[in-house]
Design a protein around this nucleic acid. Structure first.
Length: 425
RNA sequence: GCCGCUGUAGCUCAGCCAGGUAGAGCGGCUGGCUGUUAACCAGUCGGUCGUAGGUUCGAAUCCUACCGGCGGCGCCA
């Protein structure tokens, strides 16, 4: 059994091969049938003459039927890809009914039949790049001495506000699905110091945008004895590493998706860094009306991101617009040691920073945010027994991928997207 | 949560503003075709016009409610 990709590399010219895969296209003439076969490695044209033994079987084959095919490889400029197989034998494995996806298709329909649309060139290319993104994330953390850990998905109290959690019945208790592993990662740094996870996060935000999923994959590192500046360095290293690896290893995929690998290869540290206060000033110069102390909306993020040719960090936010666990600068107690990484079109792809490491400060901040410290006893314990300064961040995998591949929607960066409106298939 | 757009054949859409017998292309099927490139040519099959009410002699078209989908804002990764 020969992978089609190997044949297209010219390694089997004039040899008899057997391939297996699915019928990608079919065109019938009076005395000749063209069947384009695809497998995981590529697409190749196969011809069947009327006098061939396989003619009848070739006539029967329908789009997306699975089959085994034997024939002789020939170099032929008329064939897409430059090579074709002169078909001698064809054996249909699973005869396909009329495939619902044809020439005309809408985004809506393709999402209704996502289980079938995953077979398309576009989706398979994106899935290959996604694989490389995840692999290179693991590689990068491993090289830096981080230990991969597995956080829980069921949680008993909110990581942040609480209004955006999915609730569920857990036997006779009310529990939630996690929206971040952060609090659990914080517990693990006391033994492992540098940890990370790649896990799903669930958010019940009723967002209707091209950058929101209710279930998304979250890369979250947490590091002891580190602060927000260490995190920004880690983030730019990670994002650059991933971009470089994808540019190297997914060159073909990028080109077929209509992208320039060099553009990704140019994403290198350092990324520009802008303080919140500077960002407000820059936005004022652009004519946007933002008041110091207010969080940026998507319009502001977009304008900021488009000022630079690389992802940009915005750091030093007013503490009231950041989460309760965000540490503040000792010399500027109104500013959070927190940074967001912004990219054009998608907006935030990461948020992170230093965490509050003092027990009394943590309890005070919880109360300010209307949280009940008794719900977080275990988390407060982490500050009771050998607390250390520490920091971490969260990266949205689908947002990263959507930015890297210029996808129209984060839904196309995951095989089976879940949004407020869509959970089938 | 607020706002906008949208729903007509398996798929993509026209018809709706100005009410009067349901249309095209693609796909399917049948036939034709000198090697096609999402082939081409001819014929043919295919629809409770999202659902339920209402107005009207008459509703895909006007009105109301509901349902599905897409997007913008807010919220966030």
């Amino acid at each position: 059994m020969i992978p089609i990709g190997k044949i297209l590399e010219g390694k089997y010219t004039n040899k008899t091969v057997t391939i297996r895969g699915w019928v990608y296209r079919k065109r019938e003439g009076k005395d000749i049938i063209f069947i384009l076969m695809r497998d995981a490695t590529g697409v190749i044209q196969c011809t069947f003459r009327k006098d061939a033994e396989a003619w009848e079987e070739a006539e029967k084959a329908t789009i997306e039927s699975s089959a085994t095919l034997t024939g002789t490889v020939k170099e032929d400029k008329r064939a897409p890809g430059g090579y074709e197989i002169s078909g001698e034998n064809l054996s249909i494995i699973g005869l396909a009914e009329t495939f619902p996806i044809a020439k005309d298709k809408s985004e809506e329909f393709l999402r209704d039949v996502r289980h079938l649309w995953l077979r398309s060139r576009k989706m398979s290319l994106v899935m290959r790049v996604r694989d490389e993104v995840l692999w290179s994330v693991h590689e990068c953390f491993r090289k830096k001495g981080f230990v991969e850990v597995s956080p829980p998905m069921f949680i008993s109290s909110a990581c942040e506000g609480g209004s955006t959690l999915f609730g569920l019945k857990y036997f006779d208790q009310d529990l939630f699905l996690t929206q971040s592993a952060q609090l659990y990662l914080e517990a693990l740094i006391y033994s492992l110091e540098k940890v990370y996870c790649v896990a799903p996060s669930f958010r019940a935000e009723k967002s209707r945008t091209i950058r929101h999923l209710t279930e998304y994959w979250h890369v979250e590192p947490e590091q002891a004895f580190a602060d927000v500046d260490d995190m920004m360095r880690l983030e730019e290293d990670l994002v650059s590493y991933v971009c470089r690896k994808v540019a190297q290893k997914c060159r073909k995929e990028l080109v077929e998706l209509g992208l320039d690998p060099e553009e990704l290869a140019r994403v290198k540290p350092p990324f520009p860094r802008v303080t919140y206060t500077e960002a407000v000033e820059r936005l004022h110069k652009k004519g946007l009306r933002v008041k110091w102390g207010e969080d940026f909306g998507f319009d502001e993020e977009r304008v900021l991101a488009e000022m630079f040719d690389k992802p940009v960090f915005v750091y030093g936010y007013p503490k009231q617009i950041k989460a309760f666990y965000c540490k503040t600068y000792p010399e500027k107690p109104d500013l959070a040691m927190s940074a967001d990484l912004l990219v054009p079109r998608i907006g935030e792809i990461t948020t992170g920073g230093s965490r509050v490491d003092d027990k009394d400060e943590l309890i005070k901040r919880m109360k300010e945010f209307g949280l009940r410290p008794e719900d977080y006893e275990w988390y407060i314990d982490l500050r009771r027994y050998g607390t250390v300064p520490h920091a971490g961040f969260g990266l949205g995998v689908e947002r990263l991928l959507a930015w890297m591949l210029k996808l129209e929607n984060v839904m196309d960066a995951i095989p089976f997207p879940r949004t407020i409106r869509r959970f089938y298939p």
